[in-house]
Design a protein around this nucleic acid. Sequence first.
DNA 1: AAGTGGTCTAGACCACCTT
DNA 2: AGGTGGTCTAGACCACTTA
Lengths: 234, 234
Amino acid sequence: MNAMLADIESTADSPATGLRSTTYHRVRQAILADIVSGRFAPGARLKIAELCKRYDLSPMPIREALQQLQGEGFVIIAPNRGASVRPIDRAFVSDIYEVRGALYTIIYRDVIATADVAFDEAITSIQERFDERLRENDLAGCQELNNQLHAAIDARCTNAEVARLRTRYANMTSSLRDIFGYNVARVQEISEEHWRIIEAIRDRDLDRAVCAAQDHVRRAFENISQYFDDAKAE
Amino acid sequence: MNAMLADIESTADSPATGLRSTTYHRVRQAILADIVSGRFAPGARLKIAELCKRYDLSPMPIREALQQLQGEGFVIIAPNRGASVRPIDRAFVSDIYEVRGALYTIIYRDVIATADVAFDEAITSIQERFDERLRENDLAGCQELNNQLHAAIDARCTNAEVARLRTRYANMTSSLRDIFGYNVARVQEISEEHWRIIEAIRDRDLDRAVCAAQDHVRRAFENISQYFDDAKAE
DNA sequence: AAGTGGTCTAGACCACCTT
DNA sequence: AGGTGGTCTAGACCACTTA
């Protein structure tokens, strides 16, 4: 048996059905983790034979995992040619960020509708800790608190399809962040953008919250976008 | 060889790669067609053995097709239990329609930005023919022209991800329409909603166009929604 | 013409449900 | 226990590429 797949257990996608996990499912998780972390770079070929060795399996479960990932958009399969990690170009990232921006109209409708003082305090507290980490130049800590803030906000949305899209898009672009990293100047801006969103929520001002959130997404895109320019310029 | 799969050829998803189509790909198309048309109803079990007979194949290509459809959300696979067509309940339809409404902010931005007189005339002409069919009680003709109008509008959107989501959602809900059908009163309303959208486009009024389109989606949902109430009441 | 690598079949195996 | 039906392996086969 193989060590690489041993400790993979049901996470977000297989919510406590009490049923035994299957091999193709564990392989899917493993490949996805390798894609999301950037170990398999965008565009990289995923050869069956290599994956067979890596996970110590015969072809079929691996093929099934790849087919599923193709359906989810993480992988591209060309007939009789095989699979590769979906290439991520500027247009694709732009499209995704646009959709994410559009989804905020749904998310913030739910946020404002259900917001109460406890929620205001919760998100304010998260952002205060964010600023604290920022003052100490702890960018990893900032990223963690950034995730917490967005998770707290997104959790207010009752639309399951929106949640599904959000996690998919987050997975698709997360390898970019690891590759490019953050710089302090950008994190400083992020803090300001977060405060604008939080204030709009505290004022129960839907339009302003949505605008602030979309502005936040657009700036995130512009920040990532410049790396595509740099890559082209080389 | 099997007759059922013989005439399935590359359509929307496999855009002219010049490569030979594979068995699992043709099976995927066939199963999806059976789901979209309602021959496989929402919630119906998809047993490998039956599909093997239906398409005259061994299990593996069928399993691959099902895995891909699971990734796309058309099918649900439970470990060691097998696949079934994704059940469609009110909450799911509601979620999807909400997302579709949100996507219109993107679509109509592109529509208004690129609209010209030729486009105005094209969509006006389509809706005039729609009304003509309506006057003759030709609801099938109305549906066809309804598709044409939305296709013409959606084609203006350059966001590939939006296009992907749109066709997926359309496929997911199209079986509902076939089951429930349209009534004349609703089609009359649809015509009025279309004219409001068209006029907003002709005025190059983005906000009004988006509102009209979202209103259109919301009414479509309310119309479908009542069938879920009826089903429950029985 | 050989090589690489993806695709498909047949059948063994095993998980879960029924009695 | 027996049955149903999903899962996985081994290996043959075949499409496409390189020389």
